[in-house]
Design a protein around this nucleic acid. Structure first.
Length: 433
RNA sequence: GUGGCCAUAGCUUAGUGGUAAAGCGUCGGAUUGUGGCUCCGAUGACGAGGGUUCGAUUCCCUCUGGCCACCCCA
C-alpha cells in the first residue's frame, strides 16, 4: 500500500490495466476469435507495434484524422520516424509485401489480435491504447469474400453470447466512379451553405463524403435530398455491391443498407460496413459505438508499393465487445477450482509440502496451496473459498511419521494415511465425486 | 482539439468551513493443529498543487484522471 508521502503514479490517460478478474473475458474472446478464424481459413499474423511513420501516411491516408492528429510518433536516435500503430491493416500489408506472402496460394487470409494506439479524447469504449482483432483477405476481388468476413465476425459475436447485433452496409465506389459522386455532392451542397451547420461547411471543403453522416438536426432535411452514391456507382461497383447484397440475402443475414455510411480511412473502395449493438437496426438508433467495421480496399497494396492486389478486411474493438458482454451479462465459466488444497503446519510440514505439491502436479491432480500462511485456520478458509474437494494436511506430527491427513471438505471427515498412499487414494476419491 | 459534469478507504456510498461514517473486501482473533454461519478486532480515504480563511476534505484557481456531448472512431 502506498504511503502518504509518495506520489501515486497513474496509468497514462486513456490506458488501463486488465486485472486478473477480467482476464476470463479476454481469454474467452481470444479463444473464440482464434478457433473461428481458423475454421474460416484465416491464419494468425503478428506484426510490430511500431512501424515506419510513412507506412501510415501512405496507407491509412494523409488526410485522415487518425494520421493528421491521432498518431503517437517518435523520433529515434538514428533520426528516423516511427509510429505506434493506430490500426492494423497497413502493417499487415507491409508484412505481406516484405515477406513475399503473395507467393502463397491466394487469396491469403490473415487475422491478428493486439493493441493499437490513437491520441484521442478518451471516453467509455474509447481509449488511447485499445485492442483490436481483425481479418484481412488479400488477393481476391470476389464479393463473396467481403461477405465471408462479415459472416465470420457475426459468428464470433454470436458465439460470445451477444445479442441484438446490427449490420450497416454501403458502397463507396472506386476511383473511377467516386469523383463523379463527390462532385455531385459538392454541387448539391454548394448553394445550401447557409442552411448547414459549421461542421458541414468545413466538411464541404475538406471531406465532402462526411457530409452524409452529419447528425446535426439542422442538416437532416438537406441530407435527405442529397444525391445517393448508389446512383453513381460504375457498372463494376454496382455489380459488386449487388452481388454482396445477394450473398447477404442468401445467408439470411439482416442488414441495413445505409447510403450515408462513410468510413474514416482513405483506402476503402466498394463495400464498407459497420457492426453495432443495436436494437432498432437503423441509422437513427442510439447505439453509440461500433463494435467492428471494415470494407474492401482494392488499391492499398499498390499504394504501398506492391502489384495491384484487391483486398478486404475488418477490425473489431475488443473493449467494446467485452463491455457489451458484461452489459448483456454473458455467463463465463470461471477458472476451474483446484481439486486439492495443501495445508502445511510448522517448518517441517512446510518443507514436505513443496515436494507433495510437485508429486500431485505430476499425477495430474489440480492442486493449490497457501504455503506462506502460518495458521491452519486461514489455510482451510482459503481451501474453502477456492472450492477444493479435499485438503491435505501436513503438520509437524505427520511429517515425522510420514503420514498425511486427507480431509473431505464437504463432509469434514478426515483420515490419516501413509504419505505414499495419498495420491492413489485421492485419485480413487476424486473419481467418485 | 472544443464544451459540460465529476473525483471521499481496494469496491459501493454517507457527511462537514474546525481532518470524516457505513456496508462489502482484506488481515487477525473467539483457549492448545481444522473452513463455511456468527461475534470481536485491525486495516485503510477526502486525486495533486496553489489560493481565500484563524482554520479547507468542504469555497476559488490550475493540473491529473474519469464520464458525457461534439470532432472522429474500434
Amino acid at each position: 500500500m502506498p504511503r502518504k508521502k509518495t506520489k501515486l503514479l497513474q496509468a497514462p490517460r486513456g490506458t488501463y490495466d486488465i486485472l486478473p478478474e477480467d482476464q476470463i473475458y479476454w481469454e474467452r474472446v481470444f479463444r473464440v476469435v482464434k478457433e473461428l478464424a481458423n475454421d474460416y481459413g484465416f491464419e494468425k499474423i503478428d506484426t510490430p507495434i511500431i512501424e515506419d511513420t510513412e507506412l501510415f501516411i501512405k496507407g491509412t491516408g494523409q488526410t485522415t484524422d487518425i494520421v493528421e492528429k491521432q498518431m503517437y510518433t517518435l523520433k529515434t536516435k538514428g533520426g528516423s520516424s516511427l509510429t505506434l500503430r493506430p490500426e492494423g491493416t497497413p502493417g499487415i500489408i507491409r508484412a505481406y509485401l516484405q515477406n513475399g506472402l503473395f507467393n502463397l496460394p491466394q487469396p491469403l487470409k490473415l487475422f491478428y489480435f493486439g493493441p493499437m494506439f490513437r491520441h484521442e479524447h478518451p471516453q467509455a469504449g474509447r481509449f488511447r491504447q485499445f485492442y483490436q482483432f481483425g481479418f484481412e483477405t488479400i488477393g481476391g476481388t470476389e464479393p463473396v469474400l467481403d461477405v465471408q468476413i462479415l459472416q465470420l465476425f457475426l459468428h464470433i459475436l454470436k458465439d460470445l453470447g451477444l445479442k441484438k447485433i446490427g449490420v450497416q452496409i454501403n458502397s463507396l465506389g472506386c476511383p473511377k466512379c467516386r469523383p463523379a459522386f463527390r462532385r455531385a455532392l459538392i454541387d448539391y451542397y454548394k448553394n445550401k451553405k447557409q442552411k448547414i451547420c459549421p461542421d458541414c461547411e468545413r466538411r464541404l471543403k475538406i471531406n465532402p463524403l462526411r457530409l452524409l453522416d452529419c447528425k446535426e438536426e439542422k442538416c437532416q432535411p438537406i441530407k435527405v435530398g442529397a444525391p445517393l452514391f448508389l446512383d453513381y456507382l460504375c457498372q463494376e461497383c454496382h455489380n459488386h455491391f449487388k452481388s454482396v447484397l445477394e450473398f447477404l440475402d442468401e445467408l439470411e443475414m439482416p442488414y441495413f443498407l445505409n447510403n450515408h455510411l462513410v468510413r474514416g480511412l482513405d483506402y476503402y473502395t466498394k463495400t464498407v460496413f459497420e457492426v453495432w449493438f443495436d436494437e432498432k437496426k437503423d441509422e437513427a438508433s442510439q447505439a453509440p459505438l461500433a463494435l467492428g467495421a471494415g470494407g474492401r480496399y482494392d488499391d492499398l497494396v499498390k499504394q504501398l508499393g506492391g502489384k495491384a492486389t484487391p483486398a478486404v478486411g475488418m477490425a473489431a474493438g475488443i473493449e467494446r465487445i467485452i463491455a457489451l458482454m458484461k452489459e448483456q451479462e454473458v455467463k463465463i465459466s470461471p477458472r476451474l477450482a483446484p481439486k486439492v488444497f495443501l495445508v502445511q503446519l510448522g517448518e517441517l510440514g512446510q518443507r514436505k509440502v513443496l515436494k507433495l505439491f510437485e508429486e500431485l502436479h505430476q499425477a495430474n491432480i489440480s492442486v493449490a496451496e497457501s504455503i506462506s500462511k502460518p495458521s491452519i485456520k486461514s489455510q482451510l478458509k482459503i481451501a474453502d473459498r477456492l472450492g477444493s474437494k479435499f485438503s491435505l494436511i501436513l503438520g509437524q506430527q505427520e511429517a515425522l511419521d510420514g503420514s498425511v491427513i486427507i480431509r473431505d471438505m464437504e463432509s469434514g471427515v478426515q483420515e490419516t494415511l501413509p504419505k505414499d498412499r495419498v495420491i492413489n487414494e485421492l485419485k480413487k476419491r476424486l473419481a467418485k465425486k
